[in-house]
Design a protein around this nucleic acid. Structure first.
Length: 836
DNA sequence: ATAGGGTTAG
């Protein structure tokens, strides 16, 4: 056969072919192919030649297949396979079949390889190893382990290639027990101290969370190459042990081994995590000396480390000079900008990546950008990304889904959050935590607890972050029993020593009325951060224990911690609740003078409240006028509240005009103004305010009070008759009213804003939500138990008076937590000294 | 090498 007739090589594609054609013109097909296939670019054409003949020798097939394996030519390999099946259907040549299987593994077609593998009676060790490696690389990973055991069953002894492959599968699956058994096998066949196998074992133990195991293997190694050192260092880094990792790096250098770029890449993330900027800079210098800085991975890891240390300008400089960047580099720099609160810039860089560089956003980049949208509350942009993710199938990535979930729920679009949550195919702890925290942050703590329960029913174990969402929900609802239950869970899980958890517990107990337990937790903390102090100071504040709050603040000053802006909000509001005007003024002054903290609007609100409650109305007014910030409606609201307490109509009217101009927020200001007019008997004016309120479309958000009994929250709104015990509750209140009147109680009908008869007003007052909840508590709690009610708004003035009488009648302590603070009623008095 | 959920005030 004359080959030149059939082989038409396009000259442009294969260089030097002319020479080839002339030289081998007259040879047989077999030898032609043999020669031809030694040159990899010719494979495609060569397989065409193959189709023209049926009689090919096994040795030729072998050579063809070797070439295909080297060049990972799947298409051509398949043709050769078909050729063999067609022309030599009964071939029993194992080596040929093994080669085909190896070819498929090399091309990542593990299932095809498996089909061939299954046809081979006694596969050799090389093929077993190839198959195990194939599964260990691309999964299903458990098949790698299965094959390993099958191989042992077939009587073969694993060799030094087998162990690293199967151990890789074990570490991916976190299959600690299987790996340990395989470790024993390695010892039995005397291969434990092989460098490759030991290194694989170190890597396996570290990735499975068993650092001790990793170190034991590492220590026993008779010789360690740089890969072995890197495996151990990476293991320590993986566990966040940056000091140990750095220690090992210097041990390695003492042993005469120089860290390479992989060492740097392993260590840099943990340096960033620990914000160990100093070490990071040192390593950066080393990388420059060793010329690693041109390495893509090193560059990316360096810029990420600097970003984590909040040294964004360094990150940027590295990013700018990197000659090669990939999508990971871009994600890292975008993430750095988001972390450092340069959110707009982060989005600009993302646009640059997509538009200028035409890089396809990965799910990691999208997750990061969604966090940026969430921080900016740019939900429109977030929704666009949602659309893009859906179109490109990235929505199936759970991290993208969770980022979206978090954005929607933090952004307050609960419906979108819930819809997405229901649509998500796979949900994990993070999904649940995201939606729970979202609900809590948007004031829907009840829904948060409902989802929390659902999650537990589905046996999804809450983790630390979940509890950090749930505990504030309990705090918000004053759900002490739920909170205690979660405290128990925290302890069982071993989170009880976590600072953030303790902070959340302090807040929960103090909002649930158990300030002494809050203090106990605070006292027992081995280490505290500024949040711990803020939480306990605020706790004392809302309980009306201003002196204690001040004394804790003094304690704080003797620590290494510095009070922050929130410490002062907590302290000033504590002073305000306890009428500590002098102290409050002192610390407000010190705050900027000594601590160099610029007062924010919130601080001014606290000060106006403090001065106003203290009766210094003119000073408060003056204070507002001298504010460097434009006072907002909340500042004026605080002054109006003070005008009502001290019945200063003249100032109150002026203030309310200002509030009208600014646009009143909610209804609190209308209620205050109306109450103020009623208080001095200007009924027409009071009525007028209510008409304006109605005309402007402000509806009073309903007052709601609740009480937790037996772990169940019983909620009431005014005049509510929906509770099963309604009749009993109403009877109880009527009975109490009779006794209260005997003691001199008179319904304070000024607090009824509806325009109705006096008698009706009394009736309305009697069935206010806080009174209903208290009556329910009296009926359902043992007489030695304190009654604790929570209200979503400020407590009503008449209720405040009535509850004092009730404590005399029933001889029990009653606590009401309203939106501002605690009211501890006992023996006819309230600890707020009526300055609520 | 990048990567989702998190505690304090008002």
């Amino acid at each position: 056969m004359v080959i030149s007739k059939h082989l038409k090589f396009p000259k442009t594609l294969v260089s030097g072919l002319h020479h080839f054609q002339t030289k081998w013109k007259t040879t047989s097909t077999d030898s032609t192919l043999n020669r031809l296939f030694l040159q990899e670019p010719n494979i495609a054409e060569a397989t065409k030649t193959l189709e023209l003949t049926s009689n090919i020798e096994v040795s030729t097939y072998n050579r063809l297949l070797d070439t295909c394996i080297r060049s990972k030519s799947l298409k051509e390999g398949k043709k050769i396979h078909h050729h063999i099946l067609k022309n030599k259907p009964n071939i029993k040549n194992t080596s040929l079949l093994e080669k085909i299987a190896c070819l498929y593994v090399a091309c990542g077609e593990i299932e095809l390889a498996r089909l061939v593998f299954n046809e081979i009676k006694k596969p050799g060790i090389f093929l077993w190893n190839s198959m195990i490696r194939g599964y260990a690389w691309s999964g299903p990973f458990d098949r790698a382990i299965d094959l390993y055991y099958q191989m042992l069953d077939s009587g073969l002894k694993p060799n030094k290639f087998t162990f690293p492959f199967v151990l890789k599968a074990c570490s991916t699956l976190m299959a600690l027990e299987d790996g340990k058994e395989i470790h024993e096998d390695a010892k039995r066949v005397g291969l434990e101290s092989d460098v490759f196998i030991s290194t694989a074992l170190v890597d396996f133990y570290a990735k499975c969370g068993c650092l001790r195991g990793a170190y034991q293997v590492f220590e026993k190694m008779p010789e360690r190459d740089i890969v072995a050192w890197n495996a151990m260092i990476a293991g320590l880094a993986l566990h966040g042990l940056f000091e140990d990792a750095m220690g090992l790096v210097s041990d390695m250098q003492k042993g005469g081994k120089s860290p390479n770029s992989s060492t740097a890449v392993a260590v840099l993330p943990v340096l960033g995590q620990a914000k160990a900027l100093h070490h990071g800079k040192g390593l950066h210098g080393y990388c420059i000396r060793r010329f690693f800085y041109n390495d893509l991975l090193v560059g990316t890891a360096l810029l990420d480390m600097y970003a984590k240390c909040e040294c964004l300008s360094y990150s940027r400089r590295i990013f700018d000079i990197m000659s090669v960047r990939n999508e990971v580099t871009w994600s890292a720099i975008i993430g750095g900008y988001v972390l450092c609160d340069q959110t707009i810039e982060a989005l600009e860089i993302f646009d640059q990546m997509v538009l200028d560089e035409a890089l396809k956003p990965t799910s990691v980049a999208l997750g990061t950008v969604l966090r940026a949208c969430s921080k900016l509350n740019d939900l429109a942009r977030g929704k666009k990304i949602h659309g893009y993710s859906t179109k490109n199938g990235l929505i199936l990535d759970i991290k993208v889904g969770n980022s979206l979930l978090s954005m929607y729920s933090k952004g307050g679009i609960t419906e979108d959050a819930i819809r997405l949550f229901d649509e998500m195919k796979s949900k994990d702890v993070v999904s649940y935590s995201a939606i729970i925290s979202g609900f809590v942050q948007n004031g829907n703590a009840e829904e948060a607890l409902i989802i929390f329960r659902k999650m537990q029913q589905l046996c999804i174990e809450p983790d630390l972050a979940t509890l950090l969402g749930v505990l504030p929900a309990c705090a918000h609802l004053s759900a002490l029993q739920h909170g205690q239950c979660n405290h128990g869970y925290v302890t069982v899980c071993g989170y009880a020593s976590d600072i953030a958890i303790c902070n959340a517990l302090i807040d929960m107990y103090s909002k649930c009325g158990r300030i002494s337990i809050a203090k106990e937790i605070f006292d027992r903390m081995p280490r505290r951060d500024i949040i711990s102090w803020n939480a306990i100071i605020a706790g004392y504040g809302i309980h009306g224990l201003g002196t204690e709050a001040l004394s804790l603040f003094h304690d704080l000053l003797s620590t290494d911690l510095k009070p922050d802006d929130i410490s002062f909000i907590s302290l000033l509001s504590a002073c305000s609740h306890s009428g500590l005007v002098t102290e409050g003024k002192h610390w407000f002054y010190k705050m900027s003078e000594h601590f160099k903290i610029m007062p924010r609007m919130e601080h001014y609100i606290c000060m106006v409240d403090l001065l106003g409650r203290g009766g210094l109305l003119d000073e408060a007014y003056d204070f507002i006028r001298r504010m460097p910030l434009e006072p907002d409606v909340r500042v004026w609201g605080a002054l109006l509240g003070a005008c009502r307490i001290h019945e200063n109509i003249e100032l109150g009217e002026a203030v309310s005009k200002t509030i009208q101009k600014l646009g009143p927020e909610g209804t609190g200001n209308f209620v205050l103004l109306s109450n103020m007019y009623s208080a001095v008997g200007r009924w027409d004016d009071a009525a007028n305010v209510r008409i304006i309120q109605r005309d402007q479309g402000f509806k009073k958000s309903p007052g709601c009070s609740w009480i937790e009994i037996g772990g169940i929250l019983h909620a009431f709104i005014g005049g509510d008759q929906s509770h099963p015990q309604s009749a009993l509750i109403y009877d109880k209140l009527k009975e109490l009213l009779v006794d209260m009147k005997k003691l001199g109680y008179q319904a304070d009908t000024r607090f009824v804003l509806q325009d109705v008869e006096e008698e009706e007003k009394e009736r309305i007052l009697l069935y206010h939500s806080e009174k209903l909840a208290i009556a329910f508590g009296i009926l359902n709690l043992r007489s030695d138990k304190p009654i604790f009610v929570t209200k979503n708004l400020r407590i009503c003035g008449d209720c405040h008076t009535a509850i004092k009488f009730i404590t005399v009648i029933i001889k029990r302590v009653i606590t009401v937590r309203d939106v501002n603070r605690f009211h501890h009623f006992k023996d006819g008095t309230c600890n707020c000294t009526d300055f609520w």
